[in-house]
């Protein structure tokens, strides 16, 4: 019931102001970025590529498989290896419905995620969880605030499960901000990267 209420309030806030998901916390987080690290922002002018996203997500899943729960903290660091260009890896628990680690949105960490809706009313993490559960993961399209930007953009994220002891719903994801690329194209790209032998060079 409380979750439904929060979702309604969130939708209302989004409809009224056109702000990004998570409303209040976002302003604070963006504020901190602008005052704290101008250099980071100039670095984000370059865009992450889908290939980089896939490689980072695979590496993140493997890293958590080796490090277990002790690996979560690394994903909360803005300066760590899981933040690059305009993208970053975030970790969430689909079974316990919570954000496990997020380098740019500490306000979301530990909070329920499945109630989060974007400007189109899409339950982002419900989709991410369904897609990430598939073997080899998959791509999900939604609206989210690009780091350092004031408004929301189309984001396409690659979600993948992480095999960790004592936790069965952990997934990792990262995305590209792109107005054109389709999830189908990206699925082909992921397949090709996973098994290059299936796509012989001509």
């Amino acid at each position: 019931m409380r979750a439904t209420l929060t979702a309604i309030v969130l939708v209302a806030a989004l409809a009224a102001g056109g702000v990004s998901p998570g409303a209040a916390g976002e302003t604070a987080a963006t504020g901190a970025t602008t005052t704290g690290a101008t250099t980071t922002e100039s670095a984000t002018s370059e865009s992450a590529t889908p290939q980089e996203v896939v490689a980072k997500v695979w590496a993140a899943s493997r890293f958590l498989g080796e490090k277990g729960a002790s690996g979560y903290a690394a994903f909360n660091s803005k300066d760590g290896p899981w933040v690059w260009k305009d993208s970053y890896v975030f970790v969430y628990d689909c079974r316990l419905d919570r954000m496990v680690a997020h380098p740019l949105r500490p306000d979301l960490v530990g909070r329920p995620v499945k109630q989060i809706v974007d400007n189109n009313g899409k339950h982002i993490f419900v989709d991410l969880c369904d897609t990430g559960r598939q073997k080899g993961g998959g791509w999900v399209e939604y609206l989210w605030t690009k780091p350092g930007a004031g408004s929301v953009s189309r984001k396409i994220s690659y979600a993948l499960g992480a095999d960790i002891a004592f936790a069965s719903g952990i997934q990792v994801a990262a995305g590209v901000y792109d107005d054109d690329v389709s999830t189908a194209d990206l699925a082909t790209l992921t397949d090709r990267m996973a098994d290059p032998t299936k796509y012989p060079a001509h």
Binding site: G65, K67, G68, A69, S70, I164
Partner: peptide, 11 residues
Amino acid sequence: GNHYNLYVSSR
């Protein structure tokens, strides 16, 4: 141990 990175056990 899994929380503190001591002899981490996989699934």
